[in-house]
Write a protein that binds this DNA or RNA. Structure first.
Lengths: 200, 200
DNA sequence: GTCGGTTACATACACAACGTATGTCGTATA
DNA sequence: TATACGACATACGTTGTGTATGTAACCGAC
């Protein structure tokens, strides 16, 4: 993989990673609009020139942060789902893992609060096609095709389920750490019960 | 009410109303970030001075637009709900009226797409306490206290229901006019079916 | 009717942040 | 060792918000 990386290339990647880390911190605590590239650069004792060398725009920097977080979170949710015996159990396991992820304030804030804000709602949904939204769609399809659900329109059902996840994600991201366990279990219980309304 | 309004006061109110109308148009078509106060003022052949005379900030202007729309939409949803024979039917009638409102691109875009973006998610929810969110909360409480639902935590249930409405609102706001009737009926059907999962 | 105060704007300016164009220095390569 | 290129820094232009100040019209009191 990373064989024969020149000394110079190594440093380069380190500053890029440091920029991503600094941006992640600032975006998560101050939001997209509240962080200036000047400050991000200053965090790693560089200037905005460095930022614009590695990323084409402030938005592109955010997208890189966003995708890093989503890739990780989604892989874990998919893995958790894969352990389920059937499609129904798989969906619930993935849901649990998702709610756990949202308890991480960095993930919750950046992906579910700042994401739509920074990218705009439509672009955010579009980006989510590759991540949570796409994952939800697959679970819904599996449930439906496996005969677990009464017939439902795929897109609308996916959007609706995604909306519920969004509510949970935003609530957890905005909650204090002490409240999160209770809120998490309430959402899990409620969503599971709601889904029985669609059960075949 | 509006008795004894001096000629001058009348003109003043007209420019304020014109500013609101122009801002509504721009916010609905170009979004909050995409509209500059310069342009809003130019639309009514005035300058930014006029805007800042009537509204303390760009955000305050948006809030005025937002609240006008929400007040109107919410009154109509509440009226529709009042016609229901019982709490369950009232909720469904209000839901139908809400979905109708969301088919208006101005309402859908400004309240459900630009709202969280312009105000930030937390402030948006806070503003919604007086409108859709508050309305949903009352319906949930009525349903629960009327014995129509199995026991549920009020806040979380409200947030979840609100999340579903948000998904519907955003989908309808982002859809083309031709698609809206179909999407509307799909959401109505799905939400109703989901709610049966909580039924006592 | 005119005079002082207030209202409803316009004008001008300060400031922040993004993006871009250009410069510079170190390092790999021929 | 000369040269080209990559990784940044510096400097500048632009846009948009918010604020401070100016001004003309209007309204009420005498």
């Amino acid at each position: 993989m990373s064989t024969a990386k020149s000394r110079r290339d190594q440093f380069t990647e380190e500053t890029r990673a440091a920029l991503l880390a600094a941006a992640t911190r600032r975006f998560a605590t101050l939001g997209f609009a509240g962080t200036s590239l000047e400050d991000v650069a200053a965090d790693i004792r560089a200037t905005r020139g460095a930022v614009y060398h590695h990323f084409s725009s402030k938005r592109a920097l955010f997208e890189a942060v966003f995708q890093d977080l989503e890739r990780n979170a989604n892989d874990r949710a998919a893995e958790a789902g894969a352990l389920g015996a059937d499609a129904w159990q798989a969906a619930l396991l993935a849901l649990e893992e998702f709610l756990d992820q949202c308890c991480d304030p960095v993930y919750g804030r950046i992906v579910w609060l700042e994401g739509p804000l920074a990218l705009g709602w439509t672009a955010w949904i579009e980006a989510e096609q590759n991540f949570a939204y796409g994952l939800v769609e697959r679970f819904i399809r599996d449930l439906r095709d496996g005969g677990h659900l009464t017939p439902v329109p795929l897109t609308t059902t996916t959007q609706l389920a995604f909306g519920m996840l969004g509510a949970a994600g935003q609530a957890l991201a905005a909650a204090t750490p002490e409240e999160r366990p209770r809120i998490r279990s309430e959402y899990l219980d409620l969503i599971a019960r709601l889904l029985t309304g669609l059960r075949a």
